[in-house]
């Protein structure tokens, strides 16, 4: 006799994860390697400033909004921060996720002298508040996307797909942990499956920015730096 919910969970933890990991890892490495190997045309003009320093500075400075823009588009900026921070906190500081990342990336294996190389987990109140705020922020962001005619015109299928794929893991995870409804095993399976969908879409959508933002910012900053401009 089988428990279909548990079978689904085991599929999600087994073959489902393997498939998602292969597409995720191969896709991301493919895109990053392609960008690096393609390279850029050599700038033959004499440098007027330090491109490297400006490039490194820009990696961080682009995380701070430009003056005035927060007033111009408050929901986009504030909502964007809340979503990113909430997602980051829930992903990196929930105990079950820490042990997943440790197992996946093998931290404990790289430092065998330690029993386990893991960072401390946050409590339920912080994690769940972060998730709830992140979900609310995403709803607000979607609201502005749909109501602002310019943003709506600029939105593509990719934008809506990524929104759905990003919000699903947070919603299903919240439901599974709090056992809001449904069989808890089934909801846990749904949560893992929703993450796997996110992983599969990752290399082929704008989600790639999580890996490329560093080099993209460095590139923009270094161009300006070479020209002697601030970035």
């Amino acid at each position: 006799m089988n428990n279909p919910n548990f079978d689904l969970l085991m599929w999600a933890r087994g073959p489902g994860f393997d498939i998602a990991l292969i597409i995720f890892a191969a896709g991301i490495v493919l895109r990053i390697v392609e960008i690096i190997v393609l390279g850029r045309k050599k700038d033959l003009a004499p440098a007027k400033g330090n491109g490297v320093a400006q490039g490194i500075k820009t990696i961080f400075s682009r995380s701070i909004p430009r003056k005035g823009l927060v007033h111009y588009a408050p929901i986009t900026y504030i909502g964007g921060y809340i979503f990113h921070l909430g997602f980051f906190i829930a992903f990196f500081f929930f105990g079950a996720h820490i042990v997943f990342l440790d197992e996946l990336l093998g931290f404990s294996q790289w430092w065998p002298e330690a029993i386990s190389f893991q960072w401390p987990a946050f409590g339920r109140v912080i994690i769940e508040s972060a998730v709830a705020l992140a979900v609310l922020a995403m709803i607000a962001l979607m609201y502005t996307r749909l109501t602002d005619p310019v943003r709506r015109a600029l939105s593509t299928f990719d934008d809506y797909l990524v929104w759905v794929l990003s919000i699903l893991p947070m919603v299903t995870g919240y439901i599974a942990v709090n056992k809001l409804f449904g069989d808890p095993v089934f909801m846990l399976a749904l949560h893992i499956l929703s993450v796997e969908l996110l992983m599969i879409a990752f290399p082929f959508t704008k989600l790639m920015h999580a890996f490329t933002f560093v080099m993209a910012r460095y590139y923009n900053g270094s161009i300006q730096g070479r020209k002697g401009a601030e970035s």
């Binding site: 087994g14 994860f17 393997d18 597409i23 995720f24 997943f100 197992e103 093998g106 846990l188």
Partner: peptide, 16 residues
């Protein structure tokens, strides 16, 4: 742990 993949994914991941 329940949140950890159950299969032998490490070789697959490295191959990917």
């Amino acid at each position: 742990p329940l949140s950890v993949p159950a299969g032998d994914y490490r070789k697959l991941g490295l191959a990917a």
